[in-house]
Simulated assay, not measured.
Amino acid sequence: MATQPPTASTTPSLLALQSARKSYNVGLASEVEVLHGIDLQLQAGEFVALVGPSGSGKSTLLNILGLLEPMTAGRYCLQGQETSQLSDEGLTLLRRQALGFVFQFHHLLPAFTALENVTLPALMAHGVVTGQDKARATELLKAVGLAQALHKKPSELSGGMQQRVAIARALVHQPPLVLADEPTGNLDTQASQEVFTLLRDIHASQGTAFLIVTHDPRMAERCDRLVEVVDGLIARDTHTPHP
Rank of each mutant, 00 (worst) to 15 (best):
K134W: 01
A125L: 13
L123I: 09
L123A: 15
L123W: 11
V118I: 09
A114G: 14
A135C: 10
E139M: 08
P121G: 03
T130D: 11
N117H: 05
A135M: 06
A114I: 07
G127H: 09
D133Y: 00
K142C: 13
A125C: 12
H126G: 13
A135T: 10
L109P: 14
L123G: 15
A125H: 11
K134T: 06
D133G: 10
G127P: 10
A111P: 15
L115V: 05
A114K: 07
E139A: 13
V144M: 04
F112S: 13
L146D: 03
V128A: 15
T113D: 05
L123D: 12
Q132P: 12
L140C: 10
R136H: 09
N117S: 10
E139G: 07
P121K: 00
L120W: 06
L108V: 08
A149Y: 01
V144I: 03
P121W: 00
E116V: 01
A143K: 02
V128I: 12
L120Y: 06
L141M: 03
L141E: 05
M124P: 14
Q132F: 03
V128S: 15
A114Q: 07
A143F: 01
M124Y: 12
V118D: 09
N117K: 07
L115K: 04
A125D: 11
R136L: 09
D133P: 12
K142W: 02
L108T: 08
E116M: 05
A111G: 14
L140R: 02
E116C: 07
D133M: 02
K134E: 13
A149S: 13
P110G: 08
L141R: 00
L120H: 05
T113P: 11
H126E: 15
V144C: 08
P110F: 00
D133R: 01
G127N: 11
Q148H: 05
A137V: 03
D133I: 01
A125Q: 14
T138D: 04
V128T: 14
E116N: 06
L146C: 09
L108S: 07
T130I: 01
A137E: 06
A147E: 07
F112Q: 12
A111M: 14
F112C: 13
G145C: 07
A147R: 03
T113E: 05
G127L: 07
G131F: 00
L141G: 05
V129E: 03
L146R: 05
A135R: 10
A149M: 06
P110V: 00
G127M: 09
G127W: 04
L108G: 12
L141I: 01
R136Q: 13
L109M: 15
L120E: 13
L140F: 02
K134H: 10
G131A: 11
A137N: 03
A137I: 02
P110N: 04
T119H: 06
V118M: 08
A111K: 12
L120M: 14
